[in-house]
Design a protein around this nucleic acid. Structure first.
Lengths: 187, 187
DNA sequence: CACGATCGGCTAATGAGATTAGCTTTTTGG
DNA sequence: CCAAAAAGCTAATCTCATTAGCCGATCGTG
């Protein structure tokens, strides 16, 4: 019996494939093992348990997201940067709705996905500093941006909006509301 | 063996008590049965299965929320109404974070919680019509409001914000951003 | 190159939870 | 008072997660 050559990363790859194929609810160790061509208990050699796997999946997704946001915001500033960041965010969600929705299941987050989350937050802070925001104002603005963007994303990814009709336009509206809100804060 | 006198509503009551006590992850038929003083299979006489129970719980929570929002908005209009509605929304979340967070687990929503969801949406539409919004503009505005409010709520309820510090202030900031966004839309 | 330690995979076993089947008792309508 | 529906219960099944313990494969070293 030759080795399967698994690794924590490979397990996360398989887990993401499972989520993509069957939605957030399909993420079970049994399914991941099946896709990886291995018996379920073998996964425990690479991952502590299901909870940790979920966190690793969340971390991976946050990394993918942070990469996109960073690239999108690069070379832009203020409204232009916020709009690009927001469109990139939703772009990811539209491309991978199951992945995005699966992050909700990660229950109480530990310190696993912290690095990725920090990086994503860093991009947001960087963009908002372009408005001259600083200190508590920066924190408030970042929370507003995260709330709006994540709220729209999770509602869209989990079918929370009635019809998918005009979602594009609604999102552009949200971008406008936020950018004008940030602009007014501190000219 | 005297009857327990259960009913679908009573089962939902027990389920909500379980969620309040142990968080969203604690919602199992076994736990609900235990709290209701009944054997697990007995629950199936009142509820089709766990998925349906989750939907009923979600519906109940949406009803509680819709009641509060309706009351809060009553007698107010425009910015005043939006602010009151948003504070009432967050008030519920702060009071019952586990309940709010538990709604995410409801997976694909069927037609069970539709009535409650419609009622909640109705309150939002009513408030936004106060700005003279109508047609597609009204839909976009409602989606923006829902996204922002739900995003903030779910992040707060599931510990998504780093420190709980100043959340109050951040939320007030979000209220300002949205109300000024709605005002500018159509004076 | 041989060898022991470690690694990664496997099977077997346990336990929680959901769900179904089928039985019994309580209620209730007539 | 009686038959039928309603509401509980126990027993049994299935899917998963998780743990224990076995065994061959790999790798670093002498």
């Amino acid at each position: 019996m030759p080795r399967a050559g698994l690794s924590p990363d490979a397990v996360v790859d398989a887990a993401i494939a499972v989520v993509d194929a069957g939605g957030p609810g399909a993420l079970t160790l049994a399914a991941v093992a099946g896709r990886a061509g291995v018996a379920t208990p073998s996964l425990y050699k690479h991952v502590r348990n299901l909870a940790e796997l979920r966190q690793l999946v969340t971390a991976r997704i946050l990394e993918e997201l942070a990469d996109r946001l960073g690239n999108a915001a690069m070379g832009r500033s203020r409204d232009d940067a916020v709009a690009a960041l927001m469109r990139a965010y939703r772009g990811y969600v539209v491309e991978h709705p199951s992945r995005y929705a699966s992050m909700e299941q990660s229950a109480e987050r530990q310190h696993v996905g912290d690095a990725a989350a920090e990086r994503l937050l860093g991009v947001i802070y960087a963009v908002l500093r372009g408005y001259g925001l600083d200190g508590p104002e920066l924190v408030h603005a970042a929370r507003c941006l995260r709330s709006a963007v994540h709220g729209f994303a999770i509602l869209e990814a989990s079918g929370g909006f009635g019809l998918p009709e005009d979602l594009e336009a609604s999102y552009e509206r949200l971008i406008t509301v936020l950018t004008s809100g940030f602009s007014q804060a501190r000219v």
